[in-house]
Design a protein around this nucleic acid. Structure first.
Lengths: 119, 119, 119, 119
DNA sequence: GTGGTCTAGACCACT
DNA sequence: GTGGTCTAGACCACC
């Protein structure tokens, strides 16, 4: 899996989204330890400082918790994970609908386009 | 109508999308004249050069046509308009589905979320 | 026959070239009368002033001669016509060879390209 | 090497042609780095924005590729280079033949004129 | 240092 | 007044 970052958006934000997806998708399980800053930096091909910034933000949002000199862990509060997931997906859906309406499509048309894509 | 541009994306790209929407939505009708570079610059609160760049791109995409010292017109080839609209909306839908799947949602879940939003 | 003028070049110069071609091609015969300024203006879809400017220049070059209140005539000095034709065509050829050499082609290649075009 | 631009044609177009020639002539080799926007601006005695415009166009034509904060490179796809060269030279040849025919010359005459020039 | 974007302001030819 | 071109100068993120 390669990481091609959109050069128009700050990389640290894109890393945040990536890690959130990993948590929501349970590639990182609740309560489990995530890779070190150095490892993540290698994985993403990004400066460790950038990873640092992303993780700090995720901590602030309550999805991660760090233990000094030990490592970083995904929160075991599945409730806040779900809440965060809902928040993100709601934002994505809202934004999508807004965009499609701006392009002149109705909800019905949008749904049928999505179903078509599924075939 | 105010235009709050996303500071993370080039303004000229956002103007392009805005004008495309205006064409797809038939706020600018096929074959009709669009406002001058200077007017659009005022409307969007942006430098005329920036508008120029956007319009040049739209011209290259075949959605606009310019007549020297006269003005710019929306193409009257509704076929290209529809094609362009399809291209844009397909991109938006694809991207949306990719994002939602990355967040762990199935097509069925996505559709139901959209329908909920409709109420 | 339509006249699509290159918007990047002064129209009067393009009219000059057009009329020169008509003379060299003997569509306007040596010593014959050419259409009036008004007629030419209609033919070319151009302002009479523009035609005026072109004809004055052609007079200066000795290809035309004007008789007050009568009309304009092609010179009957076929010698100067031939000389002018040679001058123009030499310029065209020189320019062409210069361009092609700048593109990395040898004379031999150029000649073969022209012969190919002839088939 | 001085650059005297034809005042009748946009500078950015002339720069495009100039750089194309440099690519076709292998003064800029496939895959190699070309001078920076600022350097080229100095070379040509032109504003960096003008160079930017030219390079953007060349990028869109697939002859150049740009890497953010690194530099611009000639494509290493020699195929596209050859295709572009053919396109340009075909245009030049076509135009030349059209002009010469308009001046009353046959292909045979044209070829002999070119061969004369070679001596 | 690099490419990329943007502003401000100017001039041109054409209508 | 219109589109088009150009300059000068600035700022940004990335390396």
């Amino acid at each position: 899996m390669k990481y091609n970052f959109d050069p128009n958006l700050p990389i640290y934000l894109q890393v945040i989204e990536e890690i959130k997806r990993d948590i929501f998708n349970e590639r990182y399980l609740p309560g489990s330890k995530i890779p070190s800053v150095r490892e993540l930096a290698l994985q993403y091909g990004v400066n460790p400082n950038t990873i640092q910034k992303s993780l700090t933000e995720l901590e602030r949002e309550g999805l991660l918790r760090s233990e000094r000199a030990v490592g970083r862990y995904v929160t075991d509060d599945t409730n806040s994970i779900n809440k965060a997931q809902k928040e993100v997906s709601d934002g994505v859906v809202d934004n999508f609908i807004k965009e499609m309406k701006a392009l002149g499509f109705s909800i019905t048309q949008i749904v049928s386009m999505i179903n078509e894509r599924n075939r």
